[in-house]
Design a protein around this nucleic acid. Structure first.
Lengths: 226, 226
DNA sequence: TGAATCCGTGACAGTTTTGTCACTGCTATA
DNA sequence: TATAGCAGTGACAAAACTGTCACGGATTCA
């Protein structure tokens, strides 16, 4: 759950952004009205992303940005700059400073969402090693959940381990004994129907994508990325 | 569960190794009596580690080793060479060829175990991104288990997610709301005793190490690596 | 085609997990 | 020291999870 810091002196703009961010994703928000507050929050709460209006009272956005970049605690946080349309010099200044992205005002909330999502993905690839992806499948090892085409699918602990075992070796047939060992810790006991039952439950939860788990008769199962 | 290929023409040595490997760890074993069989198995079953006796009928171990290294499918598999004591020329030849380790015969099973474990750890660091370690804690994201000072501790799905959340930000205090969001997906509902109860259960399972989860009164909890 | 295997499936009961609650104990502050 | 707020704890019932089994369908091979 990434934390996003919104820095703008206009209440309604902060509100607009906040509402749109909260709608689609599970973000945590921080807000700041001026540069000093922004710098303070950035150091103490360390957001994953900053949305920074360049027009600020007291200390302008460019100054804030430079101060952020000068501190080891904040230098790597990606920043999206908000700038009034047509103020080209600001835009150029922003890009030259190495800003990660900028948005001219007035902006489309949808577009902002997309940029936020992209930047977060870029700066935090793989969700800290907790995401394993294969085709449309995205397994979250920290939440024990599966994301499949935008849908979030709850898995039980056993289902999760089983799917992870399969998905970690795409295209490779895993013998029944292997899977029983990996998931259940069984050392022998091949003559059990437990594996089949759990495969069935998994396939059910995967809906149409259940076919990604292929049966290899007499051997075991294989995950094939679509 | 790593696969280990034992290559030796003497039945009793293979047996000796097998028995010792199986005793302490959860390895899967393959066995080969001669060089041809070894090469065949290496390509088709792809072991994570090979224990190779240099004295083999037909094709000697050095030749087998060279062939392994010449094939992209097997070149990165670590090899432990077994060599008769005092045959210094073999020892040197082995090391020069880039062998990963060697053991003079007769060898101590215990020592062999240690070398196996070390090599596997070295060649497969982090268990493929599934291990997260902090002090004596080692969380296995694929098995949903905790290893603590050699002991294996079973965790429920909720306990696992909670401990992972804490352990991923060592030293950082996480607010009650944050943890509730991360682990349970609650968006508000701070006034619940659920978190406390699960913290208690976790601490119990951690035994003496339960103190690693510190209470920050009025705020939340913090994991501190010992 | 027929026999033998192997796999898919639905039902079910035992077990484990889970969240809640009431109560107790602790800590900070005045 | 008194008080209020917060955290720890044990018990409990509901819910979820899990493994097993019997049966039926599918596949392989002779």
């Amino acid at each position: 759950m990434p934390t996003i810091l919104i820095v703008d002196d206009e209440d309604d703009i902060r509100e607009l952004i906040a509402v749109n961010l909260m709608r689609e994703e599970n973000y945590k928000l921080l807000e700041a009205k001026d540069g000093l507050e922004a710098l303070d929050l950035s150091k103490n709460k360390k957001p994953d992303l900053i949305i920074l209006d360049l027009m600020l009272p007291e200390m302008d956005g460019v100054k804030v940005y430079k101060k952020l970049r000068d501190d080891v605690r904040t230098e790597s946080i990606p920043v999206i700059m908000l700038t009034a349309r047509g103020r080209l010099e600001e835009k150029i200044a922003g890009l030259e400073m190495g800003a990660d992205d900028y948005m001219p005002k007035p902006f489309s909330p949808k577009e902002l969402m997309l940029r936020v999502r992209n930047l977060l993905r870029r700066s935090n690839p793989n969700h800290g090693g907790n995401l394993i992806e294969s085709g449309p499948f995205s397994l979250d090892k920290s939440a024990l959940k599966l994301h499949l085409e935008g849908e979030e699918i709850e898995l039980t602990a056993t289902e999760f381990k089983l799917l992870l075992s399969l998905i970690e070796s795409p295209g490779i047939t895993q013998e029944r004994g292997d899977l029983l060992r990996k998931v259940w810790g069984y050392s022998d006991m091949i003559q059990t129907r437990t594996l089949d039952t759990h495969i069935k439950r998994l396939r059910e939860k995967l809906g149409g994508f259940g076919e990604a788990i292929e049966t290899v008769r007499g051997v075991g199962y294989r995950f094939s990325e679509a």
